[in-house]
Design a protein around this nucleic acid. Structure first.
Lengths: 260, 260
DNA sequence: CGTTGTTTTGACTTTATTCAAGCATGGTGG
DNA sequence: CCACCATGCTTGAATAAAGTCAAAACAACG
């Protein structure tokens, strides 16, 4: 049903649960993304209480926003299907991509400190999100220790992810950065029960460039080089990882020597 | 007392409370860093309960570690005086600096997900830290909603800080990155009630280089350029910000143009 | 089927890195 | 107390990697 509704290819419909009419409110308990998302670690009755706050928003069309930088943070969001990016627009109006987000990822965590969104989240393709009203979540956190723990785990994990990004941006050549990104996208597919290898890039080259701090031309050239070397096979936005070993070698190879 | 004990210049002794003998256990309630740290937002009796877990560790000598990458996360730490850096050592043994930390900053947040430290924290100068045993903190979080909220605020803020760093690494020329860092260090001084301008760099050039993803030679050259332009005055590790306006201009100036 | 937006390619330039010395500084032991 | 060594910092010249600009090729969409 939802699958039909969203009209997405099968791999983007992971969180769909078949059956009843009003599954909107009871989505978490049956959602296949549970273990990546807020419900992980909760027992049955706790999940039911969580479900009572969560609502599934209207689908978001490609290019449309879920929330905007500067918005009052009235809710957190979880990606349910599709793919999103988070961006910051600076004073000069330039866009910086901060991350790409897939089903199960929580959005808005960076705005909890001052109840304000510091980045915008927008869909890279037709997507759906779950809305988790913040006030009610905040109240529930004091009642359900396991929910509190899981949210903190997710925040801690987000910090870790940022560190990993910082690491790869810091030490790697442009091929290394692209290699890292491709491996990361591939790994995220595996976490969601999908095949590791044909990775579809939902974002355009300019988004990749912004995220990896390079120019679109460089992205293009590096992808080409990786293809020529027989490491990937590239067809528009579909990347087939032919030689994961060599890709990992690139990702691990530090561009610079140590200083100390 | 503590001030004498640590033998630090006055500005590094911010959290010191004068008077009684065993103030170790009652430090939070009187600590001048309260509003930057865990106790913020707690009422008197809650602070007392927090204090019961917090202990002040032995001073850490310059270059020594508080915890090491890979260690079991038995506690979080708060910087009490001095300055620290957090680093990750990768497979090849190369060190990447992830951040610099000042009194009131919480360390170890990125390891809460899997109860394991993912980076090492070491002192850049003689420093003291407060130790917050994780098990007991975790238990207390379920009892004190305001503590739970403050910890989440701090984690959210840490995410925001990472985003800001990613922004500046992404868009700025090498002068811009150094300008951003100097302004950030200066701002942190202000947050702690110190004068904005003479900023002392507790870290060596190699640390700055690793953090800002450049080479020590480049750091050297850029600092020189900023001095020649009359924006800063540099004396070894002391930086006097002569023209904050121009420094901000550099920090804000994007190195690259937008794409689309 | 033309208009628009995205991606690729090529020639050229800039910027930061690399390599190689040289200069301070601070601590140690003779 | 001073020579000496280790460490950290600076400087200069050559190099390479990635950025810029311009244009063409390609895909998508109405």
């Amino acid at each position: 049903m939802l699958g039909v509704r969203t009209g997405l290819p099968v791999e983007h419909c992971m969180p769909v649960v078949a059956g009843e009419m009003d599954l909107w409110r009871r989505a978490c308990g049956r959602c296949s993304l549970q273990r990546l998302c807020l419900p992980y670690g909760l027992d049955g009755s706790d999940i039911m209480r969580l479900e009572q706050l969560v609502s599934i928003d209207n689908p978001v069309a490609c290019g449309h926003v879920v929330f905007e930088q500067g918005d009052y943070l009235s809710a957190l969001y979880a990606v349910r299907s599709g793919a999103m990016k988070s961006v910051i627009i600076d004073e000069d109006g330039l866009e910086q991509v901060l991350g790409f987000h897939y089903p199960g990822d929580l959005l808005g965590l960076d705005g909890m400190a001052d109840r304000q969104h510091h980045c915008s989240a927008l869909a890279l393709e037709h997507s759906t999100v779950c809305r988790i009203p913040f006030e009610r979540l905040d109240a529930l956190l004091d009642e359900l220790p396991s929910l509190r723990r899981q949210l903190m785990r997710l925040m801690s994990q987000a910090l870790l992810d940022d560190e990993e990004l910082l690491m790869s941006l810091g030490r790697k050549s442009s091929e290394g950065r692209i290699a890292s990104l491709l491996l990361s996208l591939s790994h995220r597919r595996e976490l969601r029960g999908l095949a590791a290898t044909p990775v579809r890039l939902a974002m355009k080259r300019a988004d990749l460039a912004s995220f990896l701090r390079m120019r679109t031309e460089t992205i293009s050239r590096v992808l080409k080089r990786l293809q020529v070397d027989g490491i990937i096979r590239l067809d528009k936005r579909d990347v087939d990882i032919v030689d994961p070993g060599q890709l990992r070698a690139w990702a691990g190879r530090s561009a610079w020597l140590a200083d100390q």
